[in-house]
Design a protein around this nucleic acid. Structure first.
Length: 625
DNA sequence: GCCGTTTTCGGCCCGACTGTTTTCAGTCG
């Protein structure tokens, strides 16, 4: 079975660690790590690219050697170098480098001196007090290792952005109240709105160091102080989340914010651009020797480098530098652009609020319209709708429209795609509905060709308007279905079927990467909460975050349209109206001031990214010879 | 291992903190 892009990327990440354990050239290690990042961001299946001569080598950071290894992985599931390294450094040993306080050097020492090969061995040795006598180790480090093991056991890594959101804002708000503090920002992957965050990076300016660090390390949320200094402190919250606070001078706040927001790849590119101009960029500023070129705000620094300010969500080296250079950055969609939620459940099936309650909730959000989309009959346990129940629902929807004026209510249904691609509702039932979304809930482990064929068949049904949570992945617990998204998006675009970004934080499906790919294929997007209670309607922001990370604009998203335009944009079963006409109806007139939109796929297309990632000019000589 | 108007060699981003040291290596981001 072919390895997915993510699996191939994981092999490269592991090779990077193994090479580190082996004491290899750090730049060689970096090459593998960088390659892993590029492959992970790659929406187009590598198995396909591997068939086209030279296509893999077009990817940034992929040369002849790594392309060969990718081809090995695609065709055989492994590659010789990986197998050789695994014999020397088993995966359990590799995993130890993830533990706090342990890097490749120390893990290598543990392996060589004590014969430790896995977590169990490490724990036993630490408990027996054997670590403290190793060179570079001591009692504290030994204790830290034991603690890291315990945390790894319970936390298992990153937390969902949505889980971190409230505490992050509460912490920031408390710090803002401190005497002298003039600014607090939450940087890192939190600011880039990734689905999950590994830790929080707080940047604070103003205030006396002792005062700020006291308030931070003694905050009620803090379970443990990991470190404390004049400019940096780290704590662990009761939830297990690590939070780093950095106190930075006001005059270099922008430089620090830029630096700690990342991504790493984006920062490296900016730094290279600075070097080309004979400058240097770090967390204190953009400087030329002693002279500060820019440091106070991010805008100043980008401007000095000849770039427009880049929204943090785009800072992933997916073409944003080139767009910023040429004034073609997308004007990213915002939560306020959303005028409808088109995926909601009620107590009639497995929701927790009534039909009326959900409609009132949508109205309270300020939406112009919404769609009620119960489950279909395979959800027997939650009384999923069959045709008779759909017919009965027509009157219920009519009643709620009367009862809650001021918001349009679409009569929808979330219809399951059965194992063979048949829809879980007959044509008579489907004909009653204003809005039909289809989705996968079962048999998610079908082989790629089978599940792809199944979905393609479902999309062909003329009543289908959109596909909900297309890959059915659950972050941290369930892998995505093995869909050939290129085929599905291509067909969906042609049919005028929209793809959903489901805003449930553990779904985030389509993902940012896939949503970007869908847009490149010309697919229209809807962003929905899949709310099972009125309170869930507030999850919309997480869907918008994924859309922003995908570079989507308001005009890419159907539920930003006024109801008439939305209706006009829908597929019209039984009429001659084609997908192209639907797409035209969905287009909003562009405001005069608006920056020209980049050509579809011109910037983020996989193979163009390599060119975009290269520095275009070199305005100065290399620093040293 | 990648990359190249510097093109087959010689670069490749770097500062803070910790715990161990007695001047610094390792880790982290």
């Amino acid at each position: 079975m072919a390895l997915s892009n993510a699996e191939i990327a994981q092999v490269f990440s592991r090779i990077a660690v193994m090479l580190e354990l082996d004491g290899a050239n750090p730049f060689r290690v970096r090459a593998y790590r960088e390659a892993a990042r590029v492959l992970e961001e790659q929406a187009e299946p590598l198995a396909g690219l591997a068939e086209t001569a030279g296509a893999l080598e077009e990817l940034p950071g992929i040369g002849k050697d790594l392309a060969g290894k990718i081809r090995d992985l695609v065709s055989t599931g492994t590659t010789q170098a990986y197998e050789d390294l695994k014999k020397k450094y088993p995966l359990e040993l590799v995993a130890l480098t993830q533990l706090q306080g342990l890097g490749p050097k120390r893990v290598r020492l543990l392996h060589d001196a004590l014969g430790i090969r896995d977590r169990a061995g490490l724990e036993a040795a630490a408990r027996a007090g054997k670590l403290r006598d190793l060179p570079g180790f001591g009692e504290k480090l030994e204790a830290k290792v034991l603690q890291s093991l315990a945390i790894a056991e319970q936390a298992g890594g990153r937390m969902l952005l949505a889980a971190v959101w409230p505490v992050a804002h509460a912490l920031a708000a408390d710090l803002r109240k401190l005497r002298g503090v003039t600014a607090v920002e939450i940087a890192g992957s939190f600011r880039r709105r990734r689905d999950t965050v590994g830790d929080l990076d707080l940047l604070v300016t103003g205030g006396a160091p002792d005062h700020v660090m006291d308030a931070f390390t003694k905050h009620t949320q803090v379970a443990e102080v990991l470190g404390r200094g004049e400019t940096k402190s780290s704590v662990r919250l009761a939830s297990g989340l690590q939070v780093d606070l950095r106190l930075v001078p006001e005059e270099s706040f922008g430089a620090a914010l830029l630096y700690f927001s990342g991504s790493k790849a984006h920062n490296i590119e900016l730094r290279k651009m600075a070097i080309e101009r004979g400058w240097s960029l770090n967390e204190y500023g953009l400087t030329q020797g002693e002279r500060v070129v820019a440091a106070r705000t991010e805008e100043d620094i980008y401007r000095a480098l000849g770039l427009a300010w880049i929204p943090p969500e785009l800072r992933e080296m997916l073409g944003e530098i080139e767009q910023a250079r040429s004034g073609r950055l997308p004007r990213l969609i915002e939560e306020k652009d959303i005028v409808a939620d088109l995926h909601m459940h009620t107590t009639r099936t497995d929701g927790r609020d009534t039909l009326e309650g959900m409609v009132r909730g949508a109205k309270a959000k300020g939406y112009a319209y919404c769609a009620i989309t119960e489950h279909s009959k395979v959800f027997a346990m939650s009384r999923g709708f069959d045709t008779a129940r759909v017919k009965q629902s027509v009157t219920e929807i009519a009643a709620v429209r009367k009862k809650v004026p001021g918001i349009e209510v679409l009569h929808g249904l979330e219809v399951d795609i059965l194992a063979d691609g048949e829809l879980d509702l007959d044509d008579e039932g489907l004909a009653q509905l204003d809005w039909v979304i289809v989705s996968l809930h079962s048999r998610l482990d079908q082989p790629g060709p089978e599940v792809t064929k199944r979905v393609l068949r479902a999309l062909e049904h003329p009543r289908v308007c959109a596909m909900a949570h297309p890959t059915a992945r659950l972050i941290g617990s369930r892998p995505p279905a093995a869909l050939d998204l290129e085929r599905i998006f291509t067909r969906a675009a042609a049919l005028g079927v929209a793809m959903e970004i489901n805003a449930q934080p553990d779904r985030a499906d389509l993902s940012d990467v896939n949503a970007r790919f869908a847009r490149e294929k010309g697919v229209r997007i809807v962003i929905d909460t899949d709310a099972h209670a009125a309170g869930h309607l507030d999850l919309m922001r997480y869907g918008v975050f994924a859309a922003r990370r995908a570079g989507l604009e308001k005009s890419d998203v159907l539920n930003t349209l006024a109801i008439e335009r939305f209706r006009a944009a829908l597929r019209k079963p039984g009429t001659a109206k084609g997908a192209a006409e639907c797409a035209a109806a969905a287009k909003e007139p562009a405001p005069a001031t608006r920056a020209p939109k980049p050509a579809r796929g011109a910037t983020a297309k996989p193979r163009a990214a390599k060119r975009a990632a290269r520095p275009r000019e070199r305005t100065s000589k290399p620093r040293k010879r």
